[in-house]
Write a protein that binds this DNA or RNA. Structure first.
Lengths: 242, 242
DNA sequence: GTCGTTAGTGAACATGTGTGCACTATAAAC
DNA sequence: GTTTATAGTGCACACATGTTCACTAACGAC
């Protein structure tokens, strides 16, 4: 992790130095990190990340990808890989960052345009699964490497998922039915929701995208599971005295 | 899958042929598949399976294991591998079989000695997680390859998990509180339970085995999640008219 | 225009890989 | 005892892998 941060930090510092010296802070649109050179570098960096995600799509797991393979798909010679990452581990950490960036963006969009209370659960499930389908590679990466990746990648993903769970718990506090939940119990419930959604995501990602019936079944299953959870949550704390 | 069945079938047939011809169905204790030779073969077969499980314990994922590596840990030359499996895929399918055999055995034991209704959920969680810890390699294999394995292994695991979910649903029908559940909804609820338990299993398998506090936290989390699910289930079907 | 920096190249290396083949030793069948 | 079947060996091959190194070309700073 820290190696990734160091690299990114250095790159940012370099880019900052250049823009500071070349542009005396004037009024140019200042597209960040301008310059044909930087743009090209970022492009092949992205090509490497995309190549890994693409390779990961089918059967493969991240730990079975080879550096050469990724470089080849990215249209670059193996040695060029080292201009961007110190090795596959660091590329993996970048994928974690990117993947959770898209997940958090989804949450941001969802919060900025809140759904009407009617059918809230069903609509939320719909929105989430549709988004997961649209960004299948990122969600697939999270789902796979959450459990099977190298320990650095796996731990990073698990940390992000915990963070997401906490965010969700914070959102849940707004529901009037969930009074009387303490923080721990809220996270416990949020964990249940996250599990159900991740499980549904795995099913969606493995499903035939053209089989509308199967997709519908998965959506409905997830909706019912969430409803059951909320039904239980509305009763919580009345019986269990703890 | 069918290649595995074929191989096993052939081996069984061969062993059958031998025992039929060598033993005229007399009163010898007839330990099945007797003979020093068969016993030796089964021993190195098991050594190969154990080697794979052992290698899988830490960081590695099954698809990143090499045939030579497995053979070396098993204390056998690579070519000898082919006397037992046609390749790593077939060995993977055998691991699926073995892993779910231990899971089903746990269920069998649990059913034969039913728990008293008091604290039933808490005790069941305790039993399950303790069993998972005791058979960590098998449960780890299931947890990992459920989502990241080659498609044949992954599909086999998912099929077994569906089967397990159905079994659990059949068990749930005995609860008086769960009247009014149709079969689909029972499986939906059972899926929720399975998800929660698998998620807790993943946490347990990653946890430090000596950190009693952390283990306790995981146990309690899983217990609360199951309680919440059952709380919701008790209310099911009253509100949702479907 | 000149020159330094650097993203990307191509070749080389040592090592690991899956798989085939002739072989050996030994349990089992006769 | 003689013969047969076979689990395991040792060696070979062609190929894939991670990493290094000197090199080239072109962008950016001056």
């Amino acid at each position: 992790m820290f190696r990734l941060l160091k690299t990114l930090g250095l790159q940012c510092a370099m880019r900052l130095k250049r823009s500071l010296s070349s542009e005396p802070s004037d009024s140019t649109p200042a597209s960040p990190g301008t310059g044909v050179r930087d743009e090209r570098k970022q492009r092949t960096r992205k090509a490497l990340l995309d190549a890994a995600l693409t390779l990961l799509d089918g059967e493969r797991s991240f730990s079975s990808l080879s550096l050469r393979e990724v470089a080849k798909v990215a249209g670059v010679v193996p040695a060029a890989f080292y201009r961007h990452f110190t090795g596959m581990d660091e590329l993996g950490m970048s994928l974690v960052d990117d993947s959770f960036r898209t997940l958090h963006e989804m949450m941001r969009v969802a919060r900025s345009a809140p759904l009407p209370p009617a059918n809230l659960i069903a609509r939320s499930v719909e929105t989430f699964l549709r988004y997961a389908q649209a960004h299948r590679l990122h969600f697939q990466f999270i789902a796979k490497e959450r459990v099977s990746g190298s320990s650095s990648v796996r731990l990073a993903i698990r940390k992000e998922l915990r963070l997401w769970t906490s965010e969700l718990a914070a959102d849940l506090v707004a529901f009037p039915k969930l009074k009387g939940f303490n923080g721990d119990d809220l996270r416990m419930m949020a964990g249940l929701v996250v599990n159900a959604m991740m499980s549904a995501t795995e099913l969606i990602l493995d499903a035939d995208l053209n089989d509308a019936a199967e997709l519908g079944r998965i959506h409905q299953l997830a909706q019912k599971q969430l409803m059951l959870i909320f039904l239980g949550a509305a009763q919580w704390k009345s019986k269990p005295v703890q």
